[in-house]
């Protein structure tokens, strides 16, 4: 191979390295197009969210970036290093945290951290101990005795303790309780401050919203949106359900409110942007009960990209 270039010889491009670059990256599993023609660029120091419902192709993308799977077409680079041809080089700069991990059941937590640290080659021991404390992790037990949440903490610590230049996180908070999720968010903020690049996949909108500068949205293997959180604000809607004491007011025309359904004394609607106008409209009509929740990603996708008619019907029934 002639195009193998050592890290020192590579010239740093203007405006910083590109941490991740993919060109036409595609993966087929038999008849399934798991990933279609992905062109993605993530600059050094960015925190990028990768959002998509289950089966959208998030894990496939990350496994291709790590060289665990071979692309059907296209290529991928990490800091200018080809992911398929020079995986070892690329991996020196990467830490990966999967959403579900099977580890060696007979090793203890501490032994697993020791092993994975040695294989990686570079660990910040002070930070590791801090992470163990922060996640309230008991590292003296054997892996087989850990709950799902504790195993997740273990691989999170193993990934974060390397302080790698690029963190590839594939739904890393699955199984963590809310307190630990808070600790995780803190770690990502720290990573951003240190200039690390973070690529975070998730199917939970709020998690991405809270952490990321930019978001890519993946649906059925294709990247359908890519932009800053502000650019994608139109996606973030709130479902509000209000029950009234007396007569039900007409909410049509209230700013940001759409998809209004009325059943008896209950009104359901979607709110985009500020809830202020809706609250003002409700305040004058004697609200007895007010519920609101963030729509699931699936609901959002239904609202924004349309879906086959039967799915829409089914969702309406369920509501």
């Amino acid at each position: 191979m002639t195009d193998v270039v050592s890290a020192a010889e590579r010239v740093k491009p203007q405006g910083g390295w590109t941490a991740i670059r993919t060109q036409g990256l595609s993966k087929r599993y038999g008849p399934v197009d798991a990933l279609k023609n992905l062109d993605l660029e993530v600059s050094e120091g960015e925190v990028v969210g990768y959002l998509g419902p289950n089966g959208a192709g998030k894990t496939t993308t990350i496994r291709l970036l790590l060289g665990l799977a071979r692309p059907t077409a296209g290529r991928a680079e990490i800091f200018g290093i080809d992911c398929q041809r020079q995986p070892v080089e690329a991996h020196r700069r990467v830490a990966y945290v999967p959403g579900e991990a099977s580890l060696w059941p007979s090793l203890t937590g501490a032994e697993t951290l020791h092993l994975l640290g040695r294989v990686h080659g570079r660990v910040d021991p002070v930070y590791r101990d801090e992470l163990i404390e922060r996640f309230d992790f008991d590292s003296s037990k054997k892996v087989r005795a850990y709950s799902k949440g504790n195993r997740q903490k273990l691989i999170l610590i193993a990934g974060l303790m390397t302080r790698a230049d690029l963190l590839l996180l594939d739904e890393p908070t699955v199984g963590l309780d809310p307190l630990m999720e808070q600790a995780f968010r803190h770690c990502i903020h720290e990573a951003r401050e240190r200039g690390q690049t973070v690529f975070l996949s998730s199917h939970i909108l709020s998690e991405i919203e809270a952490l990321c500068d930019r978001v890519g949205i993946l649906r059925e293997g294709a990247l359908v949106e890519m932009g800053t959180m502000a650019e994608l604000r139109h996606l973030s809607a709130l479902t509000v359900e209000a029950t009234f004491d007396g007569s039900v007011p007409d909410l049509t025309g209230v700013e940001g409110v759409s998809s209004i359904e009325t059943v008896g004394r209950v009104v359901r609607c979607q709110v985009r942007g500020s809830v202020e106008p809706l609250l003002q409209a409700l305040a004058v009509s004697g609200v007895h009960k007010l519920l609101s929740h963030e729509p699931s990603l699936e609901e959002l996708f239904l609202a924004h990209y349309g879906q086959r008619a039967e799915t829409e019907g089914a969702t309406a029934d369920a509501g």
């Binding site: 203890t108 294989v119 003296s140 054997k142």
Partner: peptide, 20 residues
């Protein structure tokens, strides 16, 4: 379920295999 740290072999993939 609790065990002391015995990292002697756990310095890489070969050591891990030996331990397992």
């Amino acid at each position: 379920s609790n065990a002391p740290l015995r990292p002697r072999l756990l310095n890489g993939a070969l050591g891990l295999a030996a331990r397992l």
